[in-house]
Nucleic acid binder design. Structure first.
Lengths: 120, 120
DNA sequence: TTGATATATGAACAATCATTCAACTATTCA
DNA sequence: TGAATAGTTGAATGATTGTTCATATATCAA
């Protein structure tokens, strides 16, 4: 009888102790989920550029569209993703909405990323 | 005549000076591309967990699969993504391949991310 | 050599995603 | 009030992605 389907429970442990030690240290599922969502939010060229631009200056949607050479709609859609992940905040001034980074962390996170990229 | 299609060139500038000032500061396209790819590589729950696990211990594929409750194949596929982005490195010991974080940055980047998530 | 095990990988499929277009709200100002 | 402008949003669409399954490669041990 040939077994083809790989089942989780049949995988061999190489170092069971090590695995349970690491398992204990793992963050809660919720934390991991949010963390990956945060990175995912930064993981798109348009959004990366938005974040970088906002690390330099507070900007309105219209000017971001200009800066990135795309449409206001596309920018607005991406800003919602960043808003949802609490990466940017905004203030309204009449018709115009000005966006900026939500807090200092974001810039640190970003700078750390740039440092990694430079050493690739 | 009603204009429906939004064209890039027709967007109004709100603050042209500000836009060109930020434009000058923008990193090269290549840097932005790599940066977003790096974040994207971290932006998946399976890969996030792999990175966290490796920040604790060097691990083989088999044990990672156990730890995450998934298959070796799934882990292996995700490790390739992380390898491509130079986020993990590996050493071979006989049949077994041990993975670890490529450098210290990665942990910093990750910790900065966790700090953000905790303040959400 | 043969069988077993650790890992890698290609193809396929469903799910997710970014952008576009059209339509909508809200605000200004004439 | 009504036209113009800034921004948001829903639906549609093509592209990308994560997992699974099957198979391939590499190493070890008998």
């Amino acid at each position: 009888m040939k077994k083809t389907r790989e089942e989780i429970c049949e995988i061999t442990y190489i170092d069971k102790k090590k695995v349970s030690a690491v398992k204990k240290k793992m963050k809660p599922e919720m934390t991991m989920q949010r963390l990956s969502e945060t990175f995912k939010a930064l993981g798109d060229a348009t959004r990366t550029k938005i974040i970088f631009a906002l690390s330099q200056e507070e900007l309105c949607v219209c000017d971001m569209a200009h800066l990135l050479g795309t449409t206001k709609s596309a920018v607005s859609h991406q800003l919602r993703v960043l808003r949802n992940m609490k990466l940017v905040k905004y203030r309204k001034d009449g018709k115009i909405v000005f966006y900026s980074l939500d807090d200092e962390h974001i810039k640190n996170l970003f700078d750390e990323g740039i440092r990694h990229v430079k050493e690739m």
